[in-house]
Lab assay of single mutants.
Amino acid sequence: NKFNKELQWATWEILNLPNLNEEQVKAFIDSLRDDPSQSANLLAEAKKLNDAQA
């Protein structure tokens, strides 16, 4: 389904953001699992944090 694909994509993207530490990655992945419908928003937040920590 749509959420499953978005969840998989967001998870992959977050795992590959180079500037997030392990705790941050875990927190984003946990949030994705808690509410897959928020995957686009969570991915945007993760990318923003990744850029800020570059």
Rank of each mutant, 00 (worst) to 15 (best):
N1Y: 00
N1A: 02
N1V: 03
N1G: 07
K2S: 15
K2F: 09
K2D: 15
K2A: 15
K2E: 15
K2G: 15
K2W: 15
F3K: 15
F3R: 15
F3H: 15
F3N: 15
F3M: 15
N4M: 08
N4H: 14
N4Q: 15
N4S: 05
N4V: 13
N4Y: 14
N4W: 15
N4L: 14
K5P: 15
K5I: 03
K5T: 10
K5A: 05
E6H: 07
E6R: 02
E6W: 14
E6F: 14
E6K: 03
E6L: 14
E6D: 10
E6V: 06
L7N: 02
L7D: 05
L7V: 11
L7E: 08
L7Y: 05
L7I: 09
L7M: 05
L7W: 06
L7P: 02
Q8K: 15
Q8V: 10
Q8R: 05
Q8F: 06
Q8A: 14
Q8M: 08
W9N: 11
W9T: 06
W9K: 12
W9E: 15
W9Q: 13
W9L: 14
W9A: 14
W9R: 13
W9P: 02
A10Y: 10
A10T: 13
A10M: 06
A10F: 14
A10L: 07
A10P: 03
T11I: 14
T11A: 09
T11D: 03
T11N: 04
T11L: 10
T11P: 01
T11M: 12
W12I: 08
W12N: 14
W12P: 02
E13R: 14
E13G: 07
E13F: 06
E13T: 08
E13P: 02
E13I: 08
I14S: 01
I14H: 01
I14A: 01
I14M: 04
I14E: 02
I14L: 10
I14P: 02
I14N: 01
I14T: 01
L15S: 10
L15D: 04
L15R: 07
L15A: 08
L15P: 01
L15T: 09
L15I: 06
L15M: 12
N16W: 06
N16T: 07
N16Y: 04
N16G: 13
L17M: 14
L17N: 01
L17F: 05
L17A: 01
L17T: 01
P18V: 05
P18Y: 08
P18G: 06
N19V: 02
N19D: 05
N19W: 12
N19T: 03
N19E: 04
N19Q: 04
L20E: 00
L20R: 00
L20Y: 00
L20V: 02
L20A: 00
L20K: 00
L20S: 00
L20P: 00
N21Q: 10
N21M: 12
N21L: 09
N21V: 07
E22K: 14
E22H: 13
E22P: 12
E22Q: 12
E22T: 09
E22R: 12
E23M: 07
E23S: 12
E23I: 11
E23G: 11
E23T: 12
E23H: 10
E23N: 11
E23P: 06
Q24V: 04
Q24Y: 02
Q24W: 02
Q24F: 02
Q24K: 01
V25T: 08
V25K: 14
V25H: 05
V25Y: 05
V25S: 06
V25D: 00
V25P: 00
V25R: 14
V25W: 02
K26D: 12
K26M: 08
K26N: 13
K26W: 10
A27L: 11
A27M: 11
A27I: 12
A27P: 02
F28T: 01
F28W: 03
F28M: 05
F28N: 00
F28V: 02
I29M: 07
I29S: 02
I29Q: 03
D30H: 09
D30R: 11
D30W: 05
D30N: 10
D30K: 12
D30T: 09
S31Q: 12
S31D: 06
S31F: 07
S31T: 09
S31I: 07
S31Y: 12
L32F: 03
L32M: 12
L32I: 07
L32P: 00
L32K: 00
L32N: 00
R33G: 08
R33T: 14
R33M: 15
R33Y: 15
R33S: 14
R33F: 15
D34H: 13
D34A: 13
D34I: 13
D34N: 12
D34W: 13
D34E: 12
D34T: 08
D34M: 13
D34K: 15
D35Q: 07
D35W: 08
D35K: 07
D35F: 08
D35L: 06
P36W: 04
P36A: 05
P36D: 02
P36F: 11
P36Q: 05
P36K: 02
S37A: 12
S37E: 04
S37Y: 06
S37D: 05
S37N: 07
S37R: 06
S37Q: 08
S37L: 07
Q38T: 11
Q38G: 07
Q38S: 11
Q38F: 06
S39H: 15
S39Q: 04
S39G: 05
S39W: 15
S39I: 15
S39R: 06
S39F: 15
S39L: 14
A40T: 08
A40R: 14
A40Q: 13
A40K: 12
A40M: 13
A40V: 10
N41Q: 10
N41W: 11
N41E: 12
N41D: 07
L42Q: 05
L42D: 01
L42Y: 06
L42G: 01
L42K: 05
L42P: 01
L42T: 11
L42R: 06
L42W: 05
L43R: 04
L43I: 07
L43S: 03
L43M: 08
L43G: 01
L43V: 15
L43H: 03
L43A: 06
L43E: 02
L43F: 05
L43P: 01
A44D: 09
A44S: 09
A44R: 07
A44Q: 14
A44M: 14
E45Q: 11
E45D: 08
E45I: 09
E45W: 14
E45F: 08
E45K: 10
A46I: 02
A46P: 00
A46Y: 03
A46K: 00
K47N: 11
K47F: 07
K47L: 08
K47Q: 12
K47W: 08
K47G: 04
K47D: 02
K47M: 14
K47P: 00
K47T: 07
K48E: 08
K48G: 07
K48T: 07
K48D: 07
K48P: 00
K48M: 11
L49K: 04
L49V: 12
L49Q: 06
L49E: 04
N50T: 01
N50L: 01
N50S: 09
N50F: 01
N50E: 01
N50V: 01
N50R: 01
D51A: 11
D51V: 07
D51L: 14
D51Y: 10
D51G: 08
D51H: 07
A52T: 13
A52S: 08
Q53L: 10
Q53N: 12
Q53K: 04
Q53F: 07
Q53D: 04
Q53W: 07
A54E: 09
